[in-house]
Amino acid sequence: MDALLPQLFAGLSLGSVLLLAALGLALTFGQMGVINMAHGEFMMAGAYTAFVVQQLLPDAGVSLLVSLPLGFLVGGLLGLLLEVTLISRMYRRPLDTLLVTFGVSLVLQQAARDVFGAPNVDVRAPAWLSGAVPLLGMDVPRTRLFILALAVAAVLALSMVLKVTPLGRRIRATVQNRDLAETSGVSTRATDRLTFFVGSGIAGVAGVALTLLGSIGPTLGTAYVVDAFLVVVVGGIGQLKGAVLAAVGLGILQAGFEYSTTASLAKVLLFVVIVAFLQLRPQGLVSVRTRSLA
């Protein structure tokens, strides 16, 4: 069937979008156990960063490349601010964190509305990303290839950071056994803060990337945050690998369902599959085995 290949790519591409949205969450929700409902608003902040940068640097290509690191910084700093002022006071109180961050997300949405106005804004895609390239007999939009590459790069970078840098070691140590890490001289407070910075920063990058695909408005984040949580829960809490597998799997499933049924029904089917899956494997695709889990 000649629809198979384009749909496989559509699924992969959807998966890469989900992955970008969920990667930061995998870190903050998965590794730190903080339910941050404002994660989507950090993506929104990243998207508006791209908009502001483009106002200052009219060349779409340059502004995209500048926006990516800047979006990371903006998302990260917002996350840091949230961590220091609110979340740090409620570790181990997940339900309170959920409510507080939900409130923060509403405040951030309204702030965006006040600053940028209620209507959506537009970020132009650079010329080298417009149109499609022929690939294996199908026309693949360049923006989708770019986002795919960006997602791969983000995963690689994040896993390198976690594997080889001192920060990564400290994060993993804190996640696996907070008390032991602390007694071994790791400042878990500082680690928490940095983890949150990185996780929120990735949300900012995701926001910049999303400007290529969808609308840029105050409610941009809410469209993605639930899907992002799904990816993290299905993937298995606390594992990057799980998030990657879950994002790609859910993306391909969604695209497949959508092709054979309708977009609304596809969403329902996807939820059915997820619920059934979590019945069988409540810990998700990949589970963490640590001493403290025993």
């Binding site: 749909q7 559509a10 979008v17 695909l213 469209a223 969604q254 695209a255």
Partner: peptide, 8 residues
């Protein structure tokens, strides 16, 4: 937010 399938 994702129209790749519908547009396909």
């Amino acid at each position: 937010t994702d129209f790749s399938t519908i547009v396909n």
